[in-house]
Design a binder for these strands. Structure first.
Length: 874
RNA sequence: GGGGUGUUAGCUCAGCUGGUUCAGAGCACCUGCCUUACAAGCAGGGGGUCACUGGUUCGAAUCCAGUACGCCCCA
């Protein structure tokens, strides 16, 4: 045989991906005769590399898009990347540092030049990696969130929302990343549980030797204290309200104020108020009209307003001040407590709540339609358990901080005049016009305006993605946007349900008056077998490309999907890819077998039952498959196909029809088998595109355009349930005989005889040959008699006897039959009990009752058969 | 602290609107096989009081309540 014994993925993957590209099968353009099916890729970070999360996510998208394509829809999967401002800027800064260049040495323009250079060098890597996976994106449509058209969309949206009053500028408490030196959004903050220390500090009452004890986790911020607050209902302290205390070490006097916000049972009941460095304190400060003293620099060191420890890092200062407080007798106690540390998702730095001037998007009116769309299922989340989470977030949504103190990104189109006032306009020229109008000064020029230094949050680009990739801002009535929007399915991780999904929905309703997608499939997180998140630090993440190299893209794709129900984390094990590879090999060998058959045109088909059975079986499982797809149960869909191919097609059907060694096959069976294999390749193709395309072409010569990737998806068809039931019994009989072989150590190549005790031998017409073949039988006989010296078993109403040469172990046989008899009698008793219960008989629906009577009859027949066999043995 | 969600074979998970042919699947495991498509394989097999307690019902893995533990989101 010339075909390799094992499937070799490497050659075929490259070959077919190239062919698909050349033939333009991935390309899509609006076609009014076809129904559109659209997916926009969740744009990966432009400087990133493929990780396991991408593999899972993009495999699912490819499965969906390939199925849609075969269903004859106009399938369009739009790829692209986002500019990931903070992550990319960090990488560029690190690259420059290696070259000995500080970011601060460069002008904005010079820095951006380096950044673009970096982007152009590494920006395409991740998309190339997706091709290795088999991703059938329309690469001609590749977009990037910082390309000119998309940038223009971002700027225009900013200006538009500003003019609608939905964007404003203001001083607010933000999450400050002292390492990244930028504000970040609430969603980019990760809470980490830790044990922290609570320091109890003595604040002396002014003009007295008495003191009160204040509990704080941040003693280094006492220099920023502007008050001490107590609960006015607190008998311990209420008489002190209005008096002053002295800040330890610093001896600056601050007032004691009363506010019910203070929890009497937390700490000591005395709260130091530091408006510049804590959100709650800030609000308290506003309420009580307190000043704000900000003692921290942007990088987390103390500034001169602190007076003490100036220039020291906040954590160094904390250590030092504790050392200084203790000998001064100002440290009353130190207690450990469980606390939550806010850290930056990007840099890992401990977040500093910081008051600063930023740009914000008002969320209230934007959120409303986005909430409704999900709650009323216009947009469906899969699995739906995420609806609750979505609602609670959207109902408590806070304004979105969109300015970032970075250079890599879209610079905010706000232009300041010398007096600090500003205008917002899409271009500098328009800004000058506006400024002239605003000031009445017609002599203003471009040089009188200074553009805001900050850039916009990357999500402020990404939230426009489903519209902007189709140029829906540039040209709101263009053919593409009208055809492809709203898109169908979005596949992404639950972690970005709010950052991204919710905001795309908002943008969709704001700018298209319509949802951006109909379904959101939320994947799980890929973890290792111990349940740990995959990360570079742990080194527990395999390189996806190595896996593809080792197991083939098809193997890895199926490996990813085997255990990935929607919304559940996937405990990834390389063994899953191995299983995928083994499956590839199984399919390959089925093809190898079929292709090895010589056809003799003169032969009649002996396989009518087998052919009719598999046809029904395929149709039955195909309907199940379709249902899984409709419900976005992708791993169940794969498992359905897996079992259909392995168990039904290979283990049963092919064994039934396989001609004897080196014997030819009849034309009818061969044709049917080819047809079945083609159907199997079709339903496998979305999961395993490469091997299926390869076999599709190996099976026969085809015209260039006749590729599996665009072959028509099967349709739901008739199922002969009676035939299916019959064959199920036939296969049970075969298993029964094989079981006897196993327990009696009878080799497979030794033919056996079978006697069937039956009242209806005609039942076996058309099936006897299958039983003979699969169980290796010499003769099959039928009568209503019982056979001596045989091992027997019961299936349905009939009993099967395999005569044994020599003596059988009568006692052991009796024992076995006795046990089965007991069990069946017990079963019958439970059925009888139910049927003798009047409330059951009167209350249960007719179908249930009927089933019970059937069970009773079956059990009685079986008991009768078993008793006869036992009697025969005695 | 508030809200959500889950607890089914060794592991990962299915079990829709309650009806014992629903206690399932895949993997893992055990036994026997190098049987000419495939040892990346074939055949057969064992394994779970469906977390715990109580309730509703003729009947509960499936509905309700509570307990324990886990995870997620928000404070």
């Amino acid at each position: 045989m010339s075909i390799a014994k094992t499937y070799n993925p490497k050659e075929t993957e490259e070959k077919w991906y190239k062919t698909w590209m050349e033939q333009g099968f991935f390309r899509s353009k609006p076609n009014p005769r076809k129904q559109p099916y659209t997916i926009v890729i969740p744009p990966p970070n432009v400087t990133g590399v493929l990780h396991m999360g991408h593999m899972l996510n993009n495999t699912i998208q490819d499965v969906l898009i390939r199925r849609a394509r075969m269903q004859g829809k106009e399938a369009c999967w739009v790829p692209g990347t986002d500019h990931a401002s903070i992550a990319t800027e960090a990488k560029v800064v690190a690259m420059l540092r290696e070259k000995g260049i500080q970011k601060t040495d460069l002008s904005r323009e010079e820095f951006l030049e380096y950044a673009w250079e970096w982007k152009n060098k590494y920006g395409g890597i991740i998309l190339e990696q997706l091709k290795k996976l088999g991703a059938s994106c329309d690469w001609d449509r590749t977009r990037f969130t910082m390309e000119p058209d998309l940038t223009k969309a971002v700027i225009d949206v900013f200006v538009d929302l500003y003019r609608k009053g939905k964007i404003y500028r203001g001083v607010r408490m933000v999450n400050w990343d002292p390492v990244g030196l930028t504000a970040i959004s609430d969603e980019e903050v990760i809470a980490k549980e830790t044990t922290a220390k609570m320091y109890h500090l003595r604040y002396k009452l002014e003009g007295s030797e008495e003191f009160i004890v204040v509990a704080t986790s941040r003693p280094e911020t006492i220099m920023a204290d502007v008050a001490v607050a107590v609960n006015p209902n607190d008998d311990r302290y209420k008489h002190l309200i209005g008096k002053n205390v002295l800040i330890p070490l610093l001896n600056r006097a601050i007032p004691i104020i009363g506010d019910e916000y203070v929890a009497m049972d937390f700490g000591t009941g005395c709260l130091k108020v530091t408006p510049a460095h804590d959100l709650n304190d800030y609000e308290l400060g506003v309420k009580h009209n307190l000043p704000v003293i900000d003692i921290l620099n942007d990088n987390g060191t103390l500034n001169e307003k602190a007076v003490l420890y100036v220039g020291q890092d906040r954590f160094a200062a904390r250590k030092q001040i504790v050392k200084d407080l203790e000998p001064a007798g100002l440290l009353a106690d130190v207690k450990e407590y469980a606390s939550v540390l806010q850290t930056s998702e990007r840099t890992g730095a401990v977040i500093e709540p910081k008051l600063s001037m930023q740009w914000w998007v008002k969320m209230d009116t934007l959120a409303k339609p986005a909430l409704d769309a999900v709650m009323n299922d216009d947009i469906k989340l899969h699995p739906p358990k995420f609806k609750n989470m979505y609602r609670s977030w959207m109902e408590n949504v806070r304004d979105w901080c969109i300015s970032r103190q970075l250079w890599w990104g879209q610079q905010i189109p706000a232009y300041y005049l010398a007096d600090g006032s500003f205008v917002v306009a899409p271009t500098l020229e328009e800004a000058v016009e506006m400024a002239r109008e605003k000031t009445g000064n017609q002599h203003l020029t471009e040089s009188d305006l200074r553009q805001d230094e900050d850039v916009l949050d990357t999500w402020f680009s990404s939230w426009l993605w489903p519209i902007s990739v189709f140029d829906g801002f540039k040209d709101p009535d263009n053919k593409d946007i009208n055809y492809y929007y709203p898109t169908n399915d979005l596949v992404t991780a639950p972690e970005i349900l709010f950052f991204w999904v919710a905001r795309m929905i908002m943008a969709g309703y704001e700018y298209r008056k319509e949802m951006p997608f109909k379904n959101v499939y939320l994947t799980g997180i890929v973890r290792d077998t111990q349940g740990r998140k995959m990360s570079k630090q742990l080194g527990n993440s395999p390189d996806p490309l190595d896996l593809i190299e080792k197991y083939g893209a098809d193997g890895v794709r199926t490996g990813m999907l085997y255990s990935s129900p929607a919304g559940n984390d996937l405990l990834f094990d390389e063994k899953l890819c191995e299983q995928g590879r083994n499956f590839s090999n199984k399919i390959w060998n089925a093809y190898r077998l079929i292709s090895s058959w010589e056809c003799d045109q003169t032969l009649e088909s002996p396989n009518e039952s087998a052919i009719a059975w598999f046809e029904s079986r395929f149709n039955q499982e195909f309907a199940v498959l379709e249902e899984h797809f409709e419900k976005f149960r992708i791993s169940d869909a794969l498992m359905t196909v897996y079992k259909l191919v392995w168990d039904d097609f290979c283990s049963s059907y092919l064994e039934m029809i396989k001609p004897a060694y080196q014997k030819p096959i009849d034309p009818h069976t061969l044709k049917a088998t080819h047809h079945f294999l083609e159907n199997i390749l079709k339903v496998l193709h979305p999961f395993m595109p490469f091997i299926t395309e390869e076999i599709w072409h190996e099976l026969k010569e085809r015209p260039v355009k006749d590729c599996l990737i665009i072959a028509p998806w099967p349709k739901i068809d008739k199922v002969d349930t009676i035939l299916l039931e019959k064959m199920e019994r036939v296969l049970d009989i075969v298993a029964g005989i094989r079981h006897i072989r196993n327990t009696k150590n009878i080799p497979n190549n030794k033919a056996l005889n079978l006697h069937v005790k039956t009242a209806s031998p005609h039942y076996y017409n058309g099936f006897e040959s299958i039983i003979r073949k699969l169980a290796n039988l010499e003769t099959v006989s039928y009568s209503e008699a019982i056979i001596d010296n045989a091992i027997s078993f019961v299936e349905g109403p009939d009993e099967y006897f395999v005569p044994m040469e020599g003596n059988i172990d009568v006692e052991a046989e009796k024992d076995r039959l006795q046990k089965e008899l007991e069990y069946t009698k017990g079963f019958l008793a439970s059925v009888d009990k139910k049927l003798s219960n009047e409330r059951f008989v009167s209350g249960a629906p007719a179908i249930v009752l009927e089933k019970e009577y059937q069970k009773k009859a079956d059990a009685e027949a079986k008991i009768k058969a078993l008793e006869e066999s036992l009697a025969a043995l005695a």
